[in-house]
Structures are given as C-alpha cells and as structure tokens.
C-alpha cells in the first residue's frame, strides 16, 4: 500500500468518525472533547472510567455509544450487595442432572456499563476488573472467553460521597482513561432545556458502524506511523514522571502503552498520517490523571492539574 492509499483510508475513517461524533453530539450537548476521548479509548481497546456527579449524562453517553457503534450492551448497576456471581454468572447445582450448569452473567456482552462501580464492595469490583484485564473469565475452574470487541465503561461518583468504596490505585491502572463530563456550558444547557427528552432521542439513534468495522478501525489505528522522535518524547514523559519528586509513583509501562495506543487513535481521528506530540498531549490528561498522584508540600498527596504540569515540564525533543 502506498502512502496515498493510506492517506485516503485515513481520511475516509476520519469522515466516519467525525460523523459518529456529530451524531453523539446531538444527544450529549457541548461535550465534544469528552465524546472524542471516550471514542478514542474504545478504539484503542481500552476501558473507560467516567467520574462525575450523578445526573451529568454518564449513562446517556454510554448508551449512545453502544447504540451508534452497533454493539450489544449490558448495564450492571453496582450496589453494595452485588456479588461477583451477579456479574460473571453462576453455576447452579442442577439436582436432576446432578451437575452444575453455568448461567452466564451480564459480563458476556460487547459493551458493559458498570454503573456507579464504587458503590460495590471491592470483591465485586475486582471480579469485573479481572475480566477487563484478561478478556476472559474463569468461573468454577473453567475459562470462558468474552466476546470481541469487549469494552467496559464504568461510571463512578466522586469518592468523597457517602457510601462508596473508592477503587484502589492498582485497579485504576486497568482503566485506560478516566474522563469527567462536567457541567454543560451556558448555550448547551439552554438547548438541553429547550429540546426534547434525551431518552426519546436515544431511541432514534441508529448504528453508524458495526462491530466488524470497529475492529477494522482498531487495526487501522495501530498501523499509524510512530517515529523515533515521538517515542523519545513519550519516554521523556514517562521518565520524568518516574524521576521527578512531584509524584508519588511514576507511570507504569502499561500507562505508556496506553498513551501510545490512544495517541495513535487520536491521530487517526484527526486524520494525521503520523502521530504528533500534540496527539499525545491531547490524550495524556485523561490517561494519567488517575494514575499519578502529586506530592503536596506536607509530604501528602493531591490531585490537581497533574497532566498540565507534566506536559509543561517536559520539552519536546
């Protein structure tokens, strides 16, 4: 394939993706960056954590994404009495056949919305997180593959709310991105109030692409060119996070891989034939903000403007 062909392909994909973004933007108003990021995360085979207050449109966004990408979709509402079996499925002892038969849980679908994941106990959380990591689950000694593609979008209330079990840092690393939706701006809010019910809109959404096309796009994103100079930049970023005293722990290699994969997808979405430092800078905040904790002056940790600080400290080589 010559460069021209690649360019053409990239451009057509960009067109498709732009259309998807536009569609979603009709439902979720004024949140294009968040929409693009979540789409990037899915295309980069990552799992997404949306953290925000209730009522900001987390669930709606997930719904729309599932619909528009043509994925089959399950929602798991995490509560404090949720058991791992409720997620993964249970083997029930069948007295007649004198054997255990497996009833698959909601995890066996392409897109899972784990709603309010921090309400459940750590045991239930880790059941899902293990499934996310391995794309397969082991129940009762038997390994069962999960469908492909497999995405988890988890939503989480800010952890300072009552009755929550915040995800431990080690688990947070399994989410490729964490985004916040935030309040809509003035114009979007006005439109939201004027317009019709979002639920109605949801029903009208038809899939733009199907899951095969999605896998194709994932592959395409992986073929986006990455130069040594760019890898130098990425390594400098990782290195800085590890060596600097500003952070408690440095970024893991998995984080580095996630950044690269997401930057590729972002480049694809922007129609770049190669990954630019700007692509990294765009995706970096949502990838690292839940992985790094900044050390405060009294030796303790805070969580503010981490990505901006990191980007500012590391010159582009």
């Amino acid at each position: 394939m010559n460069t021209a062909q690649i360019d053409m392909q990239t451009n057509s994909t960009k067109g498709e993706l732009d259309k998807i973004v536009e569609e979603i933007s009709h439902v979720i108003l004024g949140k294009e960056k968040a929409i693009r990021l979540s789409l990037t995360c899915l295309l980069a085979r990552g799992h997404l954590l949306i953290e925000d207050l209730p009522g900001m449109g987390k669930t709606t966004l997930t719904h729309v994404l599932a619909n528009i990408l043509g994925l089959d979709y399950q929602r798991i509402q995490f509560t404090s009495d949720l058991l791992p079996a409720d997620i993964l499925g249970v083997s029930i002892f069948n007295r007649e056949s004198s054997s255990f038969s497996f009833h698959p849980g909601p995890v066996f679908s392409q897109l899972i919305l784990a709603d309010e994941i921090n309400r459940a106990t750590p045991r239930a959380q880790s059941a899902l997180l293990e499934a996310m990591e391995e794309s397969q689950i082991t129940v009762e000694g038997e390994t069962r593959p999960l469908p492909k593609p497999f995405f988890v979008i988890a939503t989480q209330n800010p952890s300072n709310q009552v009755g929550t079990f915040p995800l431990p840092e080690s688990q947070l690393d399994r989410f490729t991105m964490r985004i916040e939706l935030g309040y809509p701006d003035n114009m979007a809010e006005r439109e939201l109030l004027k317009g019709c019910d979002r639920r109605e809109l949801l029903k009208n959404i038809t899939p733009v692409i199907n899951s095969e096309r999605l896998i194709e796009m994932q592959k395409q994103a992986e073929s986006i060119h990455v130069s040594d100079a760019l890898l130098d930049y990425l390594q400098d970023l990782l290195e800085y996070s590890r060596r600097s005293a500003d952070y408690v722990n440095g970024l893991s290699p998995r984080a580095g891989l996630s950044v690269l994969r997401c930057a590729r997808t972002w480049a694809l979405m922007q129609g770049h034939p190669q990954v630019l430092p700007e692509d990294i800078q765009q995706v970096l905040p949502s990838i690292i903000s839940h992985r790094l904790t900044k050390v405060q002056d009294d030796g303790y940790t805070t969580q503010e403007n981490i990505a901006a600080h990191l980007i500012k400290q590391v010159p582009i080589p």
């Binding site: 630019l276 430092p277 400290q313 010159p315 582009i316």
Partner: peptide, 8 residues
Amino acid sequence: VAHEGPVD
C-alpha cells in the same frame, strides 16, 4: 515554548 508541539 519547549513543550509546545509543532502544529500548536
């Protein structure tokens, strides 16, 4: 600026 990408 040192941390500014070329496109930006």
